[in-house]
Amino acid sequence: METVMAHPFAKYLREAMMPHIWCSGCGNGIILNCFVQAVDELQMDLNKLVVVSGIGCIGRAAGYVNTNSFHTTHGRPIAFATGIKLANPELEVVIISGDGDLFAIGGNHFIHAARRNIGIKVICANNFNYGMTGGQQGPTTPVEALTTTTPYGNIEHPFNLVHLAAASGATYVARWTTLHVRRLTQSIKKLLQKEGFGFIEVVSPCPEIFGRYNKMRTGLEMMEWFRKVSAIENFSDPAKAEITPERIVVGEFVDIAKISYEKLIHEKIAEINEKKMQW
């Protein structure tokens, strides 16, 4: 009988929750894979790591990682994570959530967390639609794309997430597709080591729904689309990085140093108490 060796990352996954719910060809598993690889390469202390998700297909990611994890309400993981990080700055708090969760219902929390520069790390699975609820239009759905709620083609303009993140004050901003596994993993490692608010957008296939409505029935077809149209342009202008069917600019867009909110507040606390002691 063949002896089956365990997958090297199996220890980062909650066995009881496997197999995950994601469809064949869905990019969510790749994001999870790259994330745990980054955690593995950094030899992170799992006791100090908290993974937070909102609601959506990708929202299940929190439950799959064998670390501290919280599956919150739809749109609110960033606000929730803000509480965790401020309450215990020693924790490394990572949000893995969807485009709808983070930028429609949760858009306000995103821009404010970036503005405050709270030291939380956001990884967004951008699959251009609301997967979990059956493929409705969302804030990143391309113009003219077909979804269950845009049967005549989308007439809304999508957010350019990296531009939004950069403009809101994030200290680290990158975009990759699920085809760029090596670069994505390295980028996640960098993200996890940054001070302040960092963001990675991962363009990810949802063949089951978005693909089906838009003539890319399999994950492979969607991944081939990424291969064909993506171009690595590090530190290019995020304002010009809009995703179109013809072009997906990937790479790092922002990598700056800025003191985090949690550091500032603890500096203030120390300062106040020093003054008071002198009274």
């Binding site: 609110r76 606000a79 509480g83 309450a87």
Partner: peptide, 30 residues
């Protein structure tokens, strides 16, 4: 801040309540 605690003004009450739950799970009375 005087007692070494955290005060944060959130962007709305939805966020406030979420942050309170997060802080509670991180071990503080919130």
């Amino acid at each position: 801040l005087e007692v070494g605690g955290i005060y944060v003004q959130m962007e709305d009450e939805i966020a406030s309540m979420a942050a309170v739950i997060g802080a509670s799970y991180a071990g503080l009375k919130a």
